[in-house]
């Protein structure tokens, strides 16, 4: 289970060949449903489930090129905070 606020960041220089191993690692992790990041003794484990919002952006501005991939999803609230139980709605079956 993730903490309330976790963050992982990795920055490196790559070329079009060396970037492949990062993208492959990410693709495999999504396929397995388990995405783990580790840095500086901290581990973030994510389990993508449900609907993922996927946002791809490419831009070129005076020679500076940017391609961004963004994935958003919401974890089940119960997973983050077990004190939030699911609601039970009862309706009265008898009618007068």
């Amino acid at each position: 289970m993730a903490n309330d606020h976790d963050e992982f960041r990795h920055e490196s220089l790559e070329d079009r060949h060396s970037i492949a191993k990062y993208l492959t690692a990410l693709a495999e992790a999504f396929a397995n449903g388990n995405l783990t990041f580790r840095h500086d003794g901290q581990r973030i484990s994510l389990e993508p489930a449900g609907l993922l919002k996927f946002d791809v952006k490419a831009a070129r501005k005076r020679g500076a090129v940017k391609v961004s991939l963004r994935l958003h999803w919401q974890e089940e609230e119960e997973e983050r905070d077990p004190s939030v139980g699911s609601l039970v709605i009862k309706t009265d079956e008898r009618r007068k």
Partner: peptide
């Protein structure tokens, strides 16, 4: 210097 990490199955 100490910038090792892991992204999915890839260890850095």
């Amino acid at each position: 210097g100490s910038d090792d990490g892991e992204i999915g199955g890839l260890s850095i």
